[in-house]
Every structure is written in structure tokens, then in C-alpha cells.
Design a protein around this nucleic acid. Structure first.
Length: 746
DNA sequence: TTTTCAAGAATTTTT
DNA sequence: TTCTTGAAAA
């Protein structure tokens, strides 16, 4: 493998050969970015750099795994296994575990996913008795996350009047207090959330100069992929680690920056030159992936963005077929169109299902596509949405494991202390929380001292709590000597989870039992996999870390399934035929991005990412009507469609006139109703609500609001009702004039 | 303490 | 429409 450089073109070879000093590679979509990274690492290894001195940060765990495999194959040795390669989160989680004492954490700290964090925040809001209308857990969590990603701790927060002011204006004056509580509770629980993995790394590197120097010396060569989607925290980590040798190579494409909602800061890439004046910039502009129509169509769109690095993406590939623009009547039709089109393409071009992807803006859009594919028996795989590890039963089982590993973990404790139900209810938990605060210990540890509070608990409760502790303690002892699978088996048996679901006996419960079985086989795969690795780690702690950092993008592809996913998830992937569906105003671009030009530009970049996933064929699609929350709403084609130069587009399915089908009439009426043009009372003449009102119905009156029907009298034409309104009291109303809505029949 | 039922909210994107 | 939450009943 001496001629490895011959596998690169001229512009790819330059950054590969440039090993010393800072460099930035601006790599257009499909220009061989991964290839450059792979060969650059190979080149470093060939030059004699030890794999232990290379840090390569990728966007997904799967990307890391694949790159390692590729390197191993090309170098024909085992060195790749020893490279520090992975996502920011997983690499630094690993480092934090081995250095945890330096920042006051035990090495077996738990990692909370967003769901756990939100739950904890919502508990804190409840405990603080705050108004739920102003303090929504999700919003608070997002703000906490963005502060952490900007490296603003609670202490910094309280030192910045403008931050406090902005929360005051948003009616969240207590935000700082929540933030502080949240951070304290996490610390007390020996927990880090996703953002902590980066923030604590920075704290570690800042507070301990020896540690900083140690890792600077280890990471002589640093490579960062998808640099356009790094946030400030990540920027700081890289900056301090690369400070000694300055051998930093960042690769990215500003036109594909799509994660600002997660704190990604496009300025990191736009300002790289400013931060590293010595840096060399290379550009990869030749696209090898897509046909000319696709490349140029995408170029014509992204031109509309103001903030970007100048580049000219070109290709030698054939023109290929034009980009197809489909218009469907509604989302179900769109699904049917996609499904039948896949069917045709498959037959005409001998493609397997894995060559196709359907991309959309929001996860909820997958359903109509799924229905249509299922109907004509095309296998598909949905990426995203609720992942396996987020299922209730899986979260429950892993909560037991988490509690075994780290019994200070409050969320896991709360989650399973009474699941399956064992008579330890909310009241008991409240008491335990009070004790835990008074004694400054974790909720689990309060169990050991409840006999100090005999007045608070009756005998039954006391016994049940102790039983629970004994269960966890015996699992803890096992976990010290036995492997993860053994402990998991005893969690399942000891907790009674399986029995609980078996007793329920519903289809859903059986499904849950199967999922738990699947988890068990997953844990065995994990053990086998780790045993193969040089630095393999088969501990439960490691297993729990892996699954909490697991993402849906890490799921493996199947060549005989069509892939369905959001565009965000499709970053870095390519498919022969790509359908982008739901390209409508307010959906894509998202309605939330409309009043901010930066956000709108990001949506445009997202659309650019979607288009450039396609190799041979790109099909864009939009509908006239779409289901939302049980209503049909009218949709306009997205502005982005007009922004793609018309010469690359071929319109399809454009029937200017609809034949009104029954379906269509219903949708018109619903649409009009929604706009308030059709009075609900008049639509269904035959079974008008007026006639249907009976005693004890709760009705809503335009002026008086809600009321209870107490009496009905009179003949059909002059029916009168006596209604007791919450506001306004008892009234007798002539039904033929009143516009009443039935809210509830009792 | 647990179960049941009805009302209300919810949809951007994710490590 | 589906999921979550809260109150009432068992």
C-alpha cells in the first residue's frame, strides 16, 4: 500500500500531505471529504506518527467506526484501533472518566440524555412552585443547554446583568435559580448531561495545567470533521488541546451548517483564519457524487445565502435526469406517489431498496410515507423519532442498571423506585426528598436512615422501601464480580418487570417483553465487541455510556430497506435516489425560522444538504393540503422551490385542475371550517347539535362561556334549554338562535 | 396508593 | 390525531 496517494486527486492530495500546522479544508458536498480525512490519517501513520497521538473527532459514532475500518483495511494492520477517534461527546466522556477526581466526580458518573435532564428540570420547577405557564421544562432546558455550550456556568450567569435582564423580560426571573439548582442536583447525583461532557472537559483543562499538558502531548495531531457544526464549547476544547503543537486540521463546509439550534456556531469555520493566522486553507470543489443537474441545481439555491465562504462546486459527471418536482393533493397522495415511484425506479433500473431515501423536515412526516410503502410491500427503515433506548421499558431496565452503578442518580431512582408498582408512592417520595435535602445525601441513601424518622413512615411503607434497597444492594454486589449480562438477567427477574408485563398480557406488553429480550442480546453483542478491542471495556458503566451516547444515525443501514429520516440525520450520507417531501412554506422553511434571516439561511442550507444527498435522481415534492393535528390545512409550495433555477427542474404530476373527489370535498369543508367560514351548527343538518343537546351536557356559548344543561323543554321548532353558566348564572335559551357547541356529554 | 378517564397540549431539527 | 397530565374514584 505504497501508492495510496494515487487514490487522491490533486486538490485532495494537498491537504493530506500538509501535516504540520493549522489547516482548514473547505470541502463541498460530495467532494471526498471523508476520503481526505481517511488518507490523511493513513499518511500520518505511514510517516511514523503513533496512532495514540492522533485525535480524530467525527460527527457520529458510526462515522468513526467506519473510518477506522477503512483505515485498517488500507493499512492492513491494527493501528487504527488505537487512534482516539469518535464524537466529541464519546471521546471526552472517556477522558472525563479517567480524570473525574480532578473535577470532583466519581469515575462511574451517569450520563443524562435530554429526556432525563428535562425530567429533572421539571421536578425542580415543581418543587419551586413556579408557574408552569412561564416556566416550561423544555424551554428552560434549552436555555440551560445553550448557556452551557457558551461556557456560562450559573456563577457566570449571576455575574452578567444582561442575561438576568433577558430572563426578567421573558417572565422567568427565577431562571438563574433553576439553573443553579439543576447544576447542584446533577452534581449531587453524580450526573453529567450532554453539555456537561464538553463543559467539564473545558473545566478540567482549565483548572489543571498538568492535565492540559498531558493531553496536549498525547494529541499531537488533531483532526475535526464537520467543523461547521461545532459549538463554542467544542471550539474551546480544540483550541486548548491544539495550542502546543498547532497541528490542527479542520474539515467542513459552511454551506452545510445546520445545527445552530444545538449551539453550533458557523463563525467557528468562518473565523478560523482569524483565530489561526498561520493557517492554510484548501478547498475541495469537485463533486464526485451527484449528476450535473443536481450539483448545479443545488448551487443555484445556495447562491441565495449571504453568509458563506466563496467556492465553486463543479462536476465532471453526466447531466443526468432533471430534478423532478412533484405536486400532490395531500400528504397521503404524496406518500403514494413516492411509493409507486420507488417501485417503478426499482424495476426500471434494477436498484435495491437501500438505494432510496425519503427525507423530510420533521419526524412526524414519516407516517404517510410509511403507510404508503407498507401498502405496496416495500421494506423500509425509519431513522430517528423514538429510538430503541428511549422506549419506556428499555429506559426502565437501564434505570435499574444505572442505579446499580451509581445509586446517587436521582432520576433513575425516581423512575423505578415504584416501577413495577410496589406501594412507594408520591407522598413517600416527597418525604424522602425532604430528608435527602436535610441530610444532604442522595434520595437512595435516605433509605438507609429512614429509621431515624419513624414518625414519617408507617411499618408497611418502611418494609417496602427496605425490600427495594435490598434488591438494589444485592445487584450491586453481583455487579462487582459478574458480567453485565448476568446482572441484567437478575434485574429483569428481581425487579418483576417481566412479570408485570406478562400479567398485563396485552399485545403492547408482549412487545415490551420482546424489546427487553433484545436489550439483553444487545448487551451480549457489546461484550463480544469490547473483547475484540485493544482497550476493550466490558463494564456496565461503559455499556451505559455507550447507549446514552448512541444516536439514531449510528444505526446500521440495510441494503434492502428504503431509508426514511429527517434531513438533519442524512448529513454525510448519499443515496442513488432521494425524495425530499413536504417542501412547503411554514414546514420547510419551518414557520419558526421566518422572522430571522440567519435562521432562514440555515433552513436554506438544510435544503442544500437535502439536495446534495442524491447521486442520480432527486425528486422534490410538495402538497396542496396536509394533515396536522387532525385537521387539514392548506399548504403553499416552499420559497426554496422557486430558488432552484428552473432549467434544472422538470415538473411532474401538475394537473392544474382537480377533479373534485369525495376526499377533496371533505377537505375543502374542513379547511373552510378551520377558517371559520362554515358554521359548525349548519353543516350537519341531519344531526345538528341543537337537537342533540340533552340534560347534563356541557355546552359552550359564544358570550356566556361554559354551562351545564339543566332542563330541556318545548317542541322541536322552539326548543328551549335552561343552562347554568359558570359566568352569568342560569339562563333559558331558545336553541334555534343560540350558537352552542357541545363540549362534553355526561 | 393506584387506576381510570377526560381535558388539554402539541410538532422543528439532536449529541 | 396522539400523547401527557390532572382530578376523581376505587
Amino acid at each position: 500500500m505504497n501508492n495510496y496517494l494515487e487514490n487522491l486527486n490533486e486538490e485532495q492530495r494537498k491537504p493530506v500531505l500538509h501535516t504540520e500546522g493549522p489547516l482548514m479544508v473547505i470541502a463541498g458536498a460530495g467532494s471526498g471529504k471523508t476520503r481526505v480525512l481517511t488518507y490523511k490519517i493513513i499518511h500520518l501513520l505511514k510517516k511514523g506518527v503513533s496512532p495514540f497521538n492522533i485525535l480524530a473527532l467525527t460527527f457520529t459514532n458510526k462515522a468513526a467506526k467506519e473510518m477506522k475500518e477503512r483505515i485498517s483495511k488500507l493499512t492492513n494492520d491494527n493501528q487504527a484501533k488505537s487512534i482516539w477517534m469518535g464524537t466529541f461527546h464519546s471521546v471526552f466522556a472517556r477522558i472525563l472518566r479517567s480524570e473525574s477526581e480532578l473535577i470532583g466526580y466519581p469515575p462511574n458518573f451517569t450520563i443524562y440524555d435530554s429526556y432525563d435532564s428535562e425530567k429533572l428540570i421539571s421536578n425542580i420547577i415543581k418543587e419551586m412552585n413556579l408557574n408552569k405557564d412561564f416556566y416550561k421544562a423544555k424551554g428552560i432546558k434549552n436555555r440551560v443547554s445553550s448557556l452551557k455550550n457558551s461556557f456560562i456556568t450559573p456563577k457566570n450567569y449571576f455575574n452578567q446583568p444582561e442575561l438576568i435582564e433577558s430572563d426578567k423580560l421573558a417572565n422567568r426571573i427565577q431562571f438563574g435559580e433553576i439553573y443553579r439548582n439543576y447544576v447542584n442536583r446533577c452534581f449531587k447525583s453524580a450526573v453529567m448531561d450532554f453539555d456537561d461532557l464538553l463543559l467539564k472537559t473545558n473545566q478540567l483543562l482549565n483548572s489543571s495545567p498538568e492535565t492540559l499538558i498531558k493531553y496536549q502531548k498525547i494529541f499531537k495531531y488533531i483532526l475535526v470533521d464537520e467543523y461547521q457544526d461545532t459549538n463554542y464549547s467544542q471550539y474551546l476544547i480544540i483550541k486548548s488541546l491544539a495550542d502546543r503543537y498547532q497541528n490542527l486540521c479542520v474539515v467542513g463546509d459552511d454551506s452545510q451548517s445546520i445545527y445552530s439550534f444545538r449551539g453550533a456556531n458557523i463563525d467557528n469555520i468562518l473565523n478560523f483564519k482569524k483565530n489561526y493566522p498561520e493557517c492554510t486553507t484548501y478547498k475541495l470543489e469537485q463533486n464526485y457524487r451527484s449528476s450535473k443537474n443536481i450539483v448545479e441545481g443545488a448551487n443555484s439555491l445556495i447562491k441565495k445565502n449571504k453568509f458563506k465562504i466563496d467556492k465553486n462546486i463543479w462536476t465532471l459527471n453526466d447531466s443526468g435526469s432533471k430534478i423532478i418536482l412533484n405536486r400532490s393533493q395531500n400528504d397521503n397522495d404524496e406518500g403514494r406517489f413516492v411509493a409507486s415511484n420507488i417501485f417503478e425506479e426499482k424495476n426500471n433500473h434494477q436498484l435495491n431498496n437501500g438505494s432510496f431515501a425519503v427525507l423530510y423536515r420533521t419526524n412526524a412526516q414519516s407516517r404517510s410515507i410509511e403507510d404508503a410503502l407498507r401498502k405496496i410491500n416495500i421494506d423500509y427503515q425509519v431513522f430517528g423519532g423514538l429510538s430503541f433506548y428511549q422506549r419506556k421499558e428499555i429506559k426502565d431496565v437501564t434505570a435499574y442498571l444505572r442505579l446499580v452503578v451509581n445509586s446517587n442518580d436521582e432520576e433513575s431512582f425516581r423512575r423505578i423506585v415504584n416501577f413495577p408498582p410496589r406501594g412507594i408512592g408520591l407522598k413517600t417520595l416527597e418525604k424522602l426528598l425532604i430528608i435527602s435535602e436535610r441530610e444532604n445525601i442522595s434520595m437512595y441513601d435516605t433509605i438507609n436512615i429512614i429509621d431515624k424518622y419513624p414518625k414519617l413512615f408507617n411499618k408497611g411503607v418502611m418494609g417496602r422501601i427496605t425490600d427495594f434497597r435490598n434488591l438494589i444492594e444485592s445487584l450491586k454486589i453481583e455487579s462487582k464480580t459478574k458480567n453485565a449480562d448476568y446482572v441484567l438477567t437478575n434485574v429483569i427477574n428481581g425487579s418483576g418487570i417481566i412479570d408485570f408485563y406478562r400479567n398485563e398480557g396485552s399485545v403492547e406488553s408482549i412487545n415490551r417483553i420482546e424489546n427487553i429480550e433484545e436489550l439483553r442480546s444487545g448487551i451480549n453483542d457489546f461484550i463480544l465487541e469490547q473483547k475484540e478491542l485493544a482497550d476493550g471495556d466490558t463494564s456496565i458503566t461503559r455499556y451505559l455510556q455507550d447507549i446514552s451516547l448512541y444516536s439514531e444515525t449510528d444505526k446500521s443501514f440495510s441494503s434492502d430497506r428504503v431509508s426514511l429520516m429527517t434531513i438533519h440525520m442524512a448529513k454525510g450520507l448519499e443515496f442513488n435516489v432521494v425524495y425530499v417531501v413536504g417542501i412547503e412554506e411554514n414546514l420547510f422553511p419551518s414557520i419558526l425560522s421566518l422572522n430571522c434571516s440567519e435562521d432562514l439561511e440555515e433552513e436554506r442550507r438544510l435544503f442544500y444538504v437535502a439536495m446534495t444527498r442524491a447521486k442520480d435522481k432527486l425528486i422534490l415534492s410538495h402538497c396542496d393540503f396536509r394533515f396536522k393535528w387532525g385537521n387539514i390545512i392548506e399548504c403553499e409550495p416552499s420559497r426554496f422551490i422557486d430558488e432552484v433555477d428552473i432549467e434544472y427542474i422538470e415538473k411532474n404530476n401538475f394537473k392544474e385542475e382537480f377533479k373534485p373527489t369525495i376526499d377533496n370535498n371533505i377537505s375543502r369543508i374542513r379547511k373552510l371550517r378551520k377558517r371559520g367560514f362554515v358554521n359548525v351548527n349548519k353543516v350537519d343538518n341531519n344531526n345538528s347539535p341543537i337537537i342533540n343537546i340533552v340534560v347534563n351536557d356541557i355546552v359552550e356559548h359564544q358570550r356566556f362561556g361554559l354551562g351545564l344543561v339543566e332542563k330541556i323543554e318545548g317542541d322541536i321548532q322552539n326548543k328551549k334549554a335552561t343552562i347554568n353558566f359558570k359566568i352569568g348564572g342560569r339562563k333559558t335559551i331558545l336553541l334555534k338562535f343560540a350558537k352552542l357547541k357541545i363540549k362534553k356529554g355526561t
